[in-house]
Write a protein that binds this DNA or RNA. Structure first.
Length: 824
RNA sequence: GCGAGAGUGGCGGAAUUGGUAGACGCGCUAGACUUAGGAUCUAGUGUCGCUUAGACGUGGGGGUUCGAGUCCCCCCUCUCGCACCA
């Protein structure tokens, strides 16, 4: 018995070099039969090290890609770097190291780690977003959007992170009001900013979800984020004024129940309609609201506040006069910023009316209650309309249609659709990003940079220390230019783009990162996109994954791609935590993979990460079980060492007849083939933990492989090496060559089909139960006729002792599984 | 508060359509080989009884069923997502 320890270091290097030298993983993109685009979200090189989370993301995905390659797919698995962004710049502010220098260095280190991991990446397709060759096309994309009116500038209240010194899109603000990147509480600021009109695609983004194979949860999040709702806009006249209040409601059926109207404090009508004697309190109230953050204001737990304006509105349906209030629970940014309040049938209005003693009117009768019953809470479901004039007696869902019809007929309003989705704020007051290709000219206004002048290169020499404004604004050489239209001196836009712009189309660029004639090679994109399997964190559900879908649809509309969606199937890996907390540098609880890599090697490490549990669940980090995987690897290596060179003088058939095998051979033969199907279905479904377990079971079963004929030994070991290859690529290559194989397992894409005849066992264990309790088990040939099974069962002494003298009520036989006798 | 998911040995976790609960691994126990073992191999390992028969057992309580980790109802805990969207 040879017991040499598996020399992972030399073996891993050896095969990495082999793959690289022979370009084993270079994908021939011209071949599209059997194409499979497997993509993992590219890496953010804010630190030189790949932590456990990266390994957990990339290792298993690579295993999936490798498995598909072995199965004969033409797999494209690229990797790249999401290289722009705040952390590099913040790091620069702290240390003085230029973002470009630190980023390029980090990329170099990460590349080394990815190679060490044994990633099957096509290194010819590698890209990074911080080079002009890439970001030039961000600018080009911007200009296309601009041409179509989908990139525009507006003055708006925006989310400002005081720490990052920049604005954030709404989805980049956390639920607790913190900044997505740094956690600092975000405040509101009024600024002119660039937006992409994602709302133009709201409906399509919603509908497209039906066509893609994504986790339901993620789709739901996007649905909620888009927040489409059907309703009616209704005009309320203002007493003694020509102004009108247009409200948006999803419940026009409750129009008779309106007892007051509420405006958002920011609504411009407020200043116009407020009665002089109320002006003081209204202004004071608005001031008090301003000091609150968005989150404080919209917190559902906070008690609602508001003040009357002294003005009155006229309910168009019955001419009733109702007071106009302003309140913080009405948002200026949703609907029309005005609400008709129906306390009887809306929880928020109910709470508000109770607090300020406003009347509550019942106009929808809850089934099973009486009209005179007092409302103790708002009734928001369907019911029978009451106190509603000619609509009385109608079901309220009918009432929605009828009242909307009548409102429309009388020109008092119209049906509309509202979205929660807002346009995507893309400007950032930061240095390390793509410059916005716009020039501001005193005479011509905003002028797009002509396409032939792209890229607008990000200058290297810039003072990027924070002083409140965009760093580029103080870079004289950059900012001063001439107007492309009139030639007069003009200024460049000093802002840079959100890095989510970069990641919205990178999957198209991978196909040819050096392409010069356009944003990407359209021909290739139409053959390879959508991405077949996309793997990445669930935290991108409403950001990256929504933006990328939007940009993809836009690119389709300008004729650059034919597909509707960028990512056909989506998988989220789980999060690896440490003692229950997310690993982060600031918490100081990051686990360094290097410790394990130097002790066990990368095959063991990546296999252990897969073995820990279900991929989509993640879990708490613990190195407790890693020795188990290491032992498995050692035993496997030893086994192959013992059969060194076996392939040189032996040949295995591709299939054996079961009856020509010895008992030991048969057992092993069956197990090998059963494992083949098991490993296939498990990896196909990203269940790596059970795939590894299946291989461990197989190895345990190979105790008696010495008793097999040589050809059966070879038959077995060939298959074991092949199944091992996706999970432990270096080890498997080594084992394969130990057998005496000349070529790499991946050069030939070795995968074996299971022999279906070996999958079923000849005998089965039939569990015999009495009253549902297991009493004995009997081993019988598969498909023994029921009457024979019954005979065996009733001749069993133990069963007899349970059944004798009792009345048999029922017998249930589930073929090849269970025989249950019910007695009394 | 609303929505989604989860709760299984000392631990990580397995378990087609309801059909042997605890695969695989860690840990632990005993033994073998050894100068030694924190290496390796062999056997055992849900709990109680502990030799047997057996009883109990998948967060708690109830139900459907010949049979429930799996289906239904109620409750508890945890994780994630959304936070007044009219």
């Amino acid at each position: 018995m040879c017991n040499m320890k598996y020399p992972f270091e030399s073996i891993e290097l050896k095969w990495q070099k082999y793959w690289k030298d022979k370009k084993v993983f270079k994908t021939d993109l011209t071949k599209v039969d059997n194409k499979l685009y497997v993509l993992v979200m590219f890496i953010y090189p804010s630190a030189a090290k790949m932590h456990i989370g990266h390994w957990y993301n990339y290792g298993p995905t690579d295993t999936f890609a490798r498995y598909k390659k072995l199965k004969g797919f033409n797999v494209f698995e690229p990797i790249g770097y999401d290289a722009f962004g705040l952390p590099a710049e913040n790091y620069a502010i702290k240390t003085g190291i230029h973002p470009q220098d630190s980023t390029l260095k980090n990329i170099k280190d990460i590349r080394t780690m990815l190679e060490r991991m044994g990633g099957m990446y096509d290194w010819d397709a590698e890209l990074m977003t911080c080079v002009p060759e890439y970001y030039k096309w961000n600018q080009w994309l911007f200009l296309q959007l601009y041409k179509k009116g989908l990139a525009y500038r507006k003055n708006a209240p925006v989310n400002w992170c005081p720490s990052c010194q920049t604005v954030l899109a709404r989805e980049q603000v956390l639920a607790d009001g913190g900044c997505e990147r740094c956690g600092t509480t975000v405040i509101q600021k009024n600024l002119t900013q660039w937006f992409f009109k994602i709302t133009e695609y709201a409906d399509e983004l919603l509908e497209g979800l039906n066509k893609i194979d994504w986790p339901e949860k993620t789709k739901t999040m996007q649905i909620n984020w888009i927040g489409k709702s059907y309703g009616t806009e209704i005009d309320f006249a203002i007493e003694g004024s020509n102004e009108k209040i247009r409200v948006f409601t999803t419940r026009p059926d409750t129009l008779f129940g309106v007892t007051y109207v509420v405006l958002a404090p920011e609504n411009e009508l407020v200043q116009k309609i407020t009665k002089p004697e109320y002006k003081d309190t209204v202004d004071k109230y608005i001031e008090s609201i301003r000091s609150l953050t968005e989150v404080e204001r919209t917190s559902t737990t906070k008690e609602k506040t508001g003040v009357p304006t002294g003005a009155y509105a006229i309910n168009p349906i019955n001419g009733e006069k109702v007071p106009i209030w302003i309140a913080d629970y009405v948002l200026a940014t949703y609907g029309t910023g005005c609400v008709m309040a129906v306390p009887g049938h809306d929880e928020r209005d109910f709470e508000f009316a109770k607090k300020f003693n406003l009347p509550i009117k019942k106009v929808i009768l809850q089934p099973g209650t009486k009209e005179e019953d007092e409302l103790i809470e708002a009734y928001t479901d369907v019911g029978i309309m009451i106190n509603s004039g000619k609509y009385n007696g109608l079901s309220s869902d009918m009432g929605i249609e009828k009242i909307s019809d009548d409102i429309e007929k009388q020109g008092l309003g119209k049906r509309t659709v509202n979205y929660r989705l807002r346009d995507w704020l893309i400007s950032r007051q930061r240095y390390w990003g793509t410059p916005i290709p716009i020039i501001h000219c005193d005479k011509c206004g905003e002028v797009p940079v002509p396409e032939d002048q792209l890229p607008v290169v990000l200058p290297y020499e810039v003072n990027f220390k924070p002083d409140g404004g965009s760093p580029l604004a103080s870079c004289e050489e950059f900012i001063h230019t001439t107007c492309p239209k009139c030639g007069a001196p003009a200024k460049r836009d000093p802002d840079t783009m959100d890095t989510f712009v970069d990641s919205s189309w990178y999957y198209l660029r991978y196909l040819n990162p050096n392409y010069n004639d356009g944003m990407f090679d359209t021909e290739l994109a139409n053959r390879w996109v959508p991405v077949d399997v996309y793997v990445g964190g669930a935290e991108h559900a409403t950001m990256h994954l929504l933006y990328a879908r939007f940009i993809h649809k836009f690119l389709r509309d300008i004729g650059l791609v034919k597909s509707d969606e960028p990512f056909q199937k989506l998988i989220h890996q789980g999060t690896i935590t440490n003692q229950g907390a997310k690993m982060s540098k600031s918490k100081g609880n990051v686990v360094d993979p290097n410790e394990f890599l130097s002790k066990y090697g990368s095959d063991v490490f990546r296999m252990y990460l897969m073995f820990m549990g279900p991929y989509e669940l993640g879990g708490d980090w613990s190195d407790k079980g890693i020795v188990g995987v290491d032992r498995f690897v050692q035993r496997t290596y030893t086994l192959f060492e013992n059969y060194k060179g076996i392939a040189s003088d032996t040949q295995a058939k591709s299939k054996y007849e079961m009856n020509e095998l010895s008992p030991d051979e048969k057992k092993i033969y069956q197990k090998v083939n059963q494992t083949l199907t098991k490993v296939e279905t498990e990896i196909d479904n990203f269940r790596f933990n059970t795939a590894v377990a299946a291989l461990m079971e197989l190895l345990n079963e190979l105790k008696n492989i010495d008793n097999c004929r040589k050809e059966i030994q070879l038959y077995t070991l060939e298959r074991l090496a092949s199944m091992l290859a996706p999970l432990a690529p270096h080890l498997a290559e080594e084992c394969w060559s130990l057998l005496g194989k000349k070529k790499s397992i991946y050069e030939e894409s070795v995968w074996f089909e299971a022999d279906s005849e070996a999958l079923v066992n000849e005998t089965v264990t039939i569990v015999v139960q009495v009253n549902g309790k297991v009493r004995t088990k009997i081993e019988l040939p598969v498909d023994t006729p029921e009457k024979d099974v019954r005979n065996f069962v009733f001749n069993d002494d133990k069963i007899k002792s349970y059944v004798d003298g009792k009345q048999i009520i029922k017998e249930i036989y589930v073929p090849n599984k269970i025989y249950n006798i019910v007695v009394k």
